[in-house]
Amino acid sequence: MSTTQMTIARGINSGLRAAMEKDPKVLLMGEDIGKLGGVFRVTEGLQKDFGEDRVIDTPLAEAGIVGTAIGMALRGYRPVVEIQFDGFVYPAFDHIISQVAKMRARSLGAVKMPIVIRIPVGGGIGAVEHHSESNEAYFTHTAGLKVVCCANPADAYWMIQQAVETDDPVIFYEPKRRYWDKGEVDTSAAPCGLFESRVVKEGSDLTLLAYGPMVKTCLQAAQVAEEEGKSLEVIDLRTLSPLDLPTLTASVKKTGRVVIVHEAPTFGGLGGEISARLTEDCFYHLEAPVLRVGGYNVPYPPSRLEEDFLPDLDRVLDSVDRSLSY
């Protein structure tokens, strides 16, 4: 076991480096990812070491980036695309939904689309409009795509490599406000598979389900609750599509109560799908309705209001109390 301290951003950077060293067909595409290393410096130093043919500074056109990545994949490459911010993925939406997700089925299995689309996601950084969105539900709703989100440096390091090795297209979300959070990374072995959820804190009274930036919030909530004598289990979903339902249902059957937490607005959000599945699978084990805490159903507000919009410790605990009161 060899562990190193690194941030989430560095974890992804090191993971990408490892993936590129392992497979010469892996290449990176995106805006400003070369000399600058991306606006979050996630690809820092990679162009210098792997050259401009493998770390491609593209023209400023997201449809063009994903559209040409599709062509590269058809030629046998494994492109890793960086979308600069969540709110800028929409120009590429058509290619992701209508081409990347459907190409394999259209060809009756003759071709594959091993493309990773990296998207820094979520708010909390005081940004201007379009830089703080949580749009995962658009992609989890689409068959043909897989969607994952990392929440800590070790997962950042390993999940990006596992995503690159996946023969199916993967939307890879990175919690941008946690980019600089540090943690131990064991670079000798992956902690688990890419499409597995993980219990990050065991508990017996209630299950908190979260992913990406909300995992840390939920861990803090669990700690505060513990001081009040409540034992909360926290699960980091890691995979949003497919869902790792066995792990989720095992926990909910144990605790009988569940609160789902995400930054995205709740209406039509991933929490709704999880809620429906858990209700169906755990109906006789539930002591309370499945509750959700999420962003309000408004466009992402100006940043001076984002603390009121985003779920925080108190809103999570408020829902925990509501669930426990049933």
Partner: peptide, 19 residues
Amino acid sequence: VIGAQALHATGYAMGIQRD
């Protein structure tokens, strides 16, 4: 989808270059 394939073709050609 009208015109989408022009980008796929361009990407494929970029792959040829890299090969």
